[in-house]
Design a protein around this nucleic acid. Sequence first.
DNA 1: CTTATTCTGGAACGATTATTCAAATAAGAG
DNA 2: CTCTTATTTGAATAATCGTTCCAGAATAAG
Lengths: 188, 188
Amino acid sequence: MARPKTFDKDRALEAAVNTFRKHGYEATSAEMLVRAMGIGRQSLYDTFGDKWQLYRMAVHHYSTVQTTAHIAALRGPARAIDGIKAMVDRVAQDAKSPCLGVGSTWEFGNERPDLEEIKEAHGRVLRAAIRDRIVEAQAAGDIAAELRPDDVAAFLITTFAGLRVAGRGGANAAGLQTLADLAIRALR
Amino acid sequence: MARPKTFDKDRALEAAVNTFRKHGYEATSAEMLVRAMGIGRQSLYDTFGDKWQLYRMAVHHYSTVQTTAHIAALRGPARAIDGIKAMVDRVAQDAKSPCLGVGSTWEFGNERPDLEEIKEAHGRVLRAAIRDRIVEAQAAGDIAAELRPDDVAAFLITTFAGLRVAGRGGANAAGLQTLADLAIRALR
DNA sequence: CTTATTCTGGAACGATTATTCAAATAAGAG
DNA sequence: CTCTTATTTGAATAATCGTTCCAGAATAAG
């Protein structure tokens, strides 16, 4: 059997992710994707189907990486409140590079069931992880006991979106950190 | 002099605003605009120049209306903190309909000087108005004195973006209100 | 009425879109 | 080397894009 050289699909997908992050779905052309991914045009269609399927895979990949990083920061420190702070700080530091989650949410709202499915799955996991640490922080007296954990988790995720929009709009690192600190303040 | 009937430019512009709000710039075609605005294709180009100029006018119009509404809510109540709450609540209630400010920020970042100019001008006015009421609320003891008014104003505007992304993603009215309440909590 | 002006809508333009067919190229296995 | 398969690339398709030209319909002032 002959086994010719095959291109790195993961590398190609990550290049697609970055292109979609920067320009969104509509403003990204197949030509841009091919160039960024460093593969031939036909390989793109053979391997990933079409532009929309590639986009879905990009969103899925991005969501996985991002959710994993969120949770790693969240669970890193011993104290729950420190984990929550670490997670928020990480988003503040990362907010200068465009988020594909916010991008796809803004571009398609909740009108694309297949996209919604992907984001719902990751969102559920992330919300649950955050909620657990909130409960833990409340037990430690670091988050006000009267707050409902689900509400706080939703608030933090909404804060992520706000930070990312601010970052996209040109806010500097120090300003983003100040915003993150203020959000944490709401939990006392 | 003969003076033929002229179409209502304000109505047409508002229709353009709504179309751009829903679909963004890239995904809005001239055909969609013509249909939504209820005018002939040539009238669009004669009156508004081209698609980009129309978009700039739409962003400008939207920003003006939105800034005015923000400030009206902000200055309505006698107590400053109530004005701030009213402004945030208004955004929470409005967050289901897509915001052209967030949309243009996300679609173009801060790389379009002519767009940036428009939003900077309105942003400056809004930030100043918010800051004034924050100072007032601090004097009344309703906002923590140690917070810097500029930071709080930036935080509130970032919260607007977060709420709007959440609304676009399908959050319901009650959930948005809860998020707004939590944001206000950060100011105590 | 006439006449001046505006608006409309079909036709066309060139450019770009996503996608596919088919042929050429490249590279590893035997 | 040959053979097999992956990948690339040129060409073509059909659709749509923003935009302009142009002819005719509509409308209001004189």
